[in-house]
Simulated scan of single mutants.
Amino acid sequence: MDAEKTAFPYHAPAGGLPSQSDLHTGRAVFTEAYAFIPKGVMRDIVTSYLPFWEKTRAWVLSRPMTGFSETFSQYLMEVQPGGGSDRPELDEGAEGVLFVVGGEITVTLDGEAHAMTPGCYAFLPPSAKWTLRSTGTEPARFHWIRKAYEFVDGLDVPEAFFCEEGTRTVHAMPDTEGRWATTRFVEPDDLRHDMHVNIVSLDPGAVISFEETHVMEHGLFVLQGKAVYRLNRDWVEVEAGDFMWLRAFCPQACYAGGPGKFRYLLYKDVNRHAKLRLGR
């Protein structure tokens, strides 16, 4: 269906530290096939600072690791008003996606300013010349997904673009009556793109009814709602603010628990041959 501009809730971390009286027991898990990072882990003490970023900290949710997930990194950025960077990306070969979940930012690309608020999405190709500033009165929070772009002779590098979730087409999965759907920001058959960052939504009671087992690596950040997610051999309760990091071929399925929609931001690598020589 073609949606008119719609406002959605998006979970954003608040940081801080738990009380000394809180129980230690948590939900975090790291296995050979997946990592589960619950929202309670995203505290002040685990943030990182980045070169040439001002008034900024980041939760590093994933990074390439030999023998695990190797294609991407995902940051959850927090930029105080007036902060940002004039040199945000130091890797000329890196492409990126920004997705805003709180506050306001302005991204200036090739001299043109783009205001971004919650639900706004940007694709930034390798070698793009961009800057970013937090322009609101509250801290800006956004996902920054980075991948080394895989160039292919005969395929153009995709151009940058900016858009909003609420104005994109929602594609229902076949035979689900719209209960399981995907908001796409890139068309699947556009082979210039070697990664997709989409939003998946399930209505209460909807299911991913088979154990997907595939070559794509995943980062899944829960934007809204709750569910029970199948990760390899385990059923794991997940809710808004949690992050799931899956290596290739990790079996996965889902049951949306309600009472409202369950939605997550999904990364996957696509549209390239498998590398036959490790390290090249």
Rank of each mutant, 00 (worst) to 15 (best):
G102C: 11
T167H: 01
G166A: 06
D156V: 04
F161N: 03
V107G: 01
E164S: 12
E177M: 02
L191I: 12
W130A: 02
F142G: 01
K129D: 11
R179S: 03
G82E: 13
E150C: 09
K129M: 09
G178H: 00
Q74F: 14
G136Q: 05
R184H: 10
E70W: 12
E187I: 10
P88Q: 09
R133G: 02
P118N: 07
A181R: 12
S73T: 15
P188F: 09
D110E: 10
W180G: 01
P126M: 12
E164Y: 08
G166Q: 05
W144C: 06
D189G: 09
S85D: 11
Y121I: 06
K147W: 09
P118L: 04
L155Y: 02
A140N: 05
E177L: 03
E70T: 15
A160N: 06
V152Y: 09
I105Q: 04
D91L: 14
G178K: 00
R63K: 14
Q80S: 15
G111F: 04
E95W: 10
G96Y: 06
R192H: 10
P126L: 13
T131Y: 00
M173C: 01
A128M: 08
F99D: 03
R168V: 00
C163A: 10
C120V: 04
A160E: 08
T131R: 08
R141Q: 07
P81Q: 14
G119I: 07
A172Q: 00
E95I: 11
G82A: 13
D175K: 04
Y75P: 04
G83N: 13
P174F: 00
A94M: 15
E95Y: 10
T182V: 15
K147Y: 06
T169D: 00
T169S: 03
H143W: 10
R146G: 07
T66D: 11
W130Q: 02
T131A: 02
R146L: 13
C163I: 08
T182L: 13
F151D: 02
E95F: 11
F162I: 07
L76E: 06
R87M: 11
F185Q: 05
G111R: 05
G136A: 05
T108I: 05
R146F: 06
T108D: 05
L98R: 11
K129P: 02
